[in-house]
Amino acid sequence: MEASLATVRRAVFRLAERGAALSALYHRARLVGAEHVPAQGPVLLVGNHGVWGYETPAFFHLLHRATGRWALGLAERGFFRIPVIRTVLPWLGGVEGTKDNALAALKQGALVVCYPGGAREVFKRPPGRYQLRWEQALGFAHVAARAGVPVVPFAGFGVDDTFLFPPGEAKLGVRLTDEEKYRVPLLVGLGPLPFPVRLTFALGSPHMPPPAGASESRLRAFRDRVAASVHRLMVMARHA
């Protein structure tokens, strides 16, 4: 039974990687600044999320091609309420986005990708294009400080242009947490395909976090510095 499951997992992963490579090719995707990712050792990548999170496979594919490292993604915790996603996402390099999971992965030397905007950025409406919805998010700052690992900021451009939004408000809603229900916008592309816009991902210089046990004010200042770097990288990616 375990051998059969392992075979299925490998097959699903290979299929997903082929899909990611095709997505990168379709969007002429490129990655700049890969030299900021160390060849080994724990590192936390923090950046903006595109609409519906569609860009993530292409980004992870480019990271692996440029660095030889497979990224581990911290996924919105609410998605793990959905049985199929809860089963398959870990096969593809996604784990529930908790501090404990992030710390455990970093302790093992992983390359961890975090989107502090989570579902707020995934289900954004057009007025929110290329705006960080980090709200009061401090999770990644706490994790980086406790783990003592560098935070590499990144930004994606083109990630909010892959689909158009029909007029009118989204009527479909999804509840990913007990506190928040997100309106899911309808998307329109070239039939079933997204628009073939170019995707550009830019990575910046690492930020070293404050020490473990740092005050909330220092953690907020660190978060704001990383956010400012992501904004600058968006401009760079736009003109790259």
Score class of each variant (00 low, 15 high):
95 V>Y: 04
186 L>R: 14
12 V>L: 14
82 I>V: 15
129 R>S: 13
179 E>P: 01
220 R>C: 05
50 G>V: 04
147 A>R: 00
133 R>K: 15
145 A>I: 10
119 A>H: 02
51 V>C: 05
62 L>E: 07
66 A>L: 04
52 W>L: 14
166 P>S: 13
99 K>F: 00
239 H>P: 00
176 L>G: 13
136 Q>G: 14
61 H>T: 04
103 L>E: 02
155 A>H: 07
89 L>W: 02
72 L>Q: 01
226 V>K: 05
190 L>E: 13
115 Y>L: 12
22 L>V: 08
187 L>W: 02
70 W>P: 09
154 F>I: 08
143 V>I: 15
199 L>W: 00
202 A>P: 00
176 L>A: 07
201 F>P: 00
182 Y>D: 15
128 G>L: 05
175 R>P: 04
163 F>N: 04
188 V>S: 07
147 A>M: 12
22 L>G: 06
199 L>G: 02
137 A>D: 10
18 R>K: 11
200 T>A: 11
27 H>C: 08
8 V>F: 13
28 R>L: 13
34 A>K: 05
85 I>W: 13
42 P>V: 09
102 A>N: 01
20 A>M: 06
138 L>S: 09
235 V>L: 12
84 V>M: 11
167 P>Q: 07
193 L>T: 03
12 V>W: 07
179 E>H: 14
59 F>G: 08
134 W>H: 07
86 R>N: 15
121 E>P: 03
141 A>Q: 04
188 V>C: 08
71 A>Y: 03
181 K>P: 04
190 L>P: 03
147 A>W: 02
229 S>K: 07
202 A>N: 05
194 P>L: 04
219 L>K: 03
132 L>N: 06
229 S>H: 07
228 A>H: 11
108 Q>P: 01
8 V>D: 07
173 G>M: 12
49 H>I: 07
225 R>E: 15
108 Q>K: 14
12 V>P: 06
92 L>D: 10
30 R>V: 15
73 G>V: 10
154 F>N: 02
163 F>Q: 06
182 Y>I: 10
178 D>I: 08
32 V>N: 01
236 M>T: 15
108 Q>S: 14
72 L>H: 00
169 E>N: 11
99 K>Q: 14
70 W>Y: 14
171 K>P: 00
212 A>H: 09
214 A>T: 06
235 V>E: 14
107 K>W: 05
149 V>C: 11
236 M>N: 07
157 F>E: 09
207 H>C: 12
207 H>Q: 09
1 M>Q: 10
52 W>S: 12
101 N>Q: 10
228 A>P: 05
171 K>E: 14
64 H>W: 05
100 D>T: 12
133 R>L: 15
51 V>R: 04
59 F>L: 15
19 G>S: 09
175 R>L: 06
